[in-house]
Amino acid sequence: MNALKSGSRLEQVLAAGQFAVTAELGPPKSADVEVIKTKAASLKSVVDAVNITDNQTAIVRMSSIAAGALAMKEGLEPVIQITCRDRNRIAIQSDVLGACALGLRNILCLTGDHQVFGNHPTSRNVYDMDSIQLLAMLKGMRDGKKFACGDDIRNGKNAPVVEPRIFIGAAANPFGDPFEFRVVRLAKKAAAGADFVQTQCIYDMERFERWMKQVRDRGLHEKVKILAGVTPLKSLGMAKHMRDNVAGLTVPDFCIERLEKAADKAAEGIAICVEQIQKLREIPGVAGVHIMAIEWEAKVPEIVNRAGLAPRPQV
């Protein structure tokens, strides 16, 4: 138990074999700190850690590290998301040192949404590396104590080596194509250095279970902690949008039908989400749940409570 890589709360919860709960906090599209304070107030003590997204869907927002540092002041444990879209290996390594210096201990490595989806579609992307190379680079910084170029992480020849002690995460999408390569992607992420993964939000339980079977067959659940992603459906419109417009996402008909019939769509969306979490907990190899309540952070406490995941363990 004392061989922790980062000592982050999330790492400790998972290492203790507790079913982990993480959520997501989208930084504001402005310099407005109040947005972070309000969202943080809903999530504080309710979840083990909170992902701070990095300009998700390529829309400019407050930097994930800055927002993460602010969220930490509000009592949250952040998971800093870093995408490969906007920064090269120089900037990312610099950011990781900075994040670590600010006390941020969890970093999630993502390829990043393509800029055509965002509000600066004419911008140039970077993609100096992909998410798997990013994982390998961060593991090399932490465990190898070296930068990607091979230099020691120290300020000078006689200075101490001070490497970033971080808990390294990745994303996994069991619903993209080619399906048979999806588990290979996870295996590569585990091999590259992922300590935990959070999946794309799951509605198609059948496909997720098939993927988890492949995961267990390769023993990957023992190498990397898998947090299953869920997103509560706020409305029928959102459900249809997710089904029709989000690549790598399927929303089964029964979800749509239940929302159609329900008088209170939002309450039904929460109910579906709670049931999903209960089902996911039963799947062997699932080590936790990642609740992505998109601009609906206030509902996370209710979801966590009703799913029987409150209170969170003290570590």
Partner: peptide, 14 residues
């Protein structure tokens, strides 16, 4: 579209 060297991102569909 992202010049990825280690496999497809989540945006690969059909």
């Amino acid at each position: 579209s992202k010049s990825l060297l280690n496999g497809p991102c989540g945006g690969s569909q059909d």
